[in-house]
Design a protein around this nucleic acid. Structure first.
Lengths: 138, 138
DNA sequence: TTACTTTTGCAACAGTGTTGCATATAGACA
DNA sequence: TGTCTATATGCAACACTGTTGCAAAAGTAA
């Protein structure tokens, strides 16, 4: 199976139309194997329109290909979802790590511990750790 | 002790010059007893310049009067620090709660559990819970 | 191929955050 | 209290992200 047909299959399985831009974007995510921001995409695809890339990220997120990582800096970052994600079931309980040196945001395997607070209905939890990542620390 | 002299004392103890704008801003934080954003201040102090309010928040944060709460929406929110905070020692390990209904962000008493990841140097952790707050749930 | 739906590219705008600079003001000291 | 110096303020201006509307282009299904 070629890379292209594989990517096409992913898009279709998430009910997304196969367009050049989407194939390129998804391929980039798969190749980089790390979280990316709109800015990263803009740098990589200089000929593409910013709005199109923005909408690509939105539709990918909506259809469960990517998940949006809440970044305190206000620069949204996106990471690939597990295979099991879809627009219907789109859950992520893992924590994220942001490196202060290289700026990379990584998805960690560890899940966020469940916190209960009397009187509150907790529905969602975002835990972002910061420090020096494995690569930069080495 | 009047409110004003109390506020003045707080500013001075954090090595901040006492100006009308700073007194008003700090008084507002103390009176509201909740986290506030630049927007909230703009609404409250319509005659004040946005930039001045912005810089007031910055200097308060820098000198340990307020702490900046990382909000995923990109709208920075600020909360009063403990009495013990200063520009030198400025640590916050508590978690925050954002209500999906009223939008309020609260500081919780509970501290964030320490997470260790092999190979990583974790220096900071931000945990934001979302759901329905005590007031809205009642 | 045709017809229909979705995506793209472009223009344009809102909001937040941010800096530079001249002026006003606070705090310190004589 | 008056003077001086460092700091804060107000204004203009800009960068950047996110966002929407709309006409043209492209994908998909029959």
């Amino acid at each position: 199976m070629t890379r292209y047909s594989e990517i096409k299959k992913i898009l279709k399985s998430h009910k997304l139309r196969v367009t050049d831009g989407r194939v390129d974007t998804l391929e980039f995510f798969l190749r980089q194997a790390k979280t990316l921001s709109l800015k990263d995409l803009e740098k990589e695809f200089k000929n593409s329109d910013r709005v199109t890339l923005y909408r690509t990220l939105s539709s990918f997120t909506e259809h469960g290909v990517l998940h949006k990582i809440p970044d305190d800096s206000g620069h949204a970052t996106y990471g690939l979802c597990h295979d099991t994600c879809s627009s219907e079931d789109h859950s992520h309980d893992h924590m994220h790590f942001k490196c202060n040196e290289c700026g990379t945001i990584e998805c960690l395997e560890q899940n966020i511990p469940v916190v209960k607070i009397p009187g509150y209905h907790v529905k969602e939890a975002n835990l972002i750790l910061k420090g020096i990542c494995k690569t930069c620390a080495a």
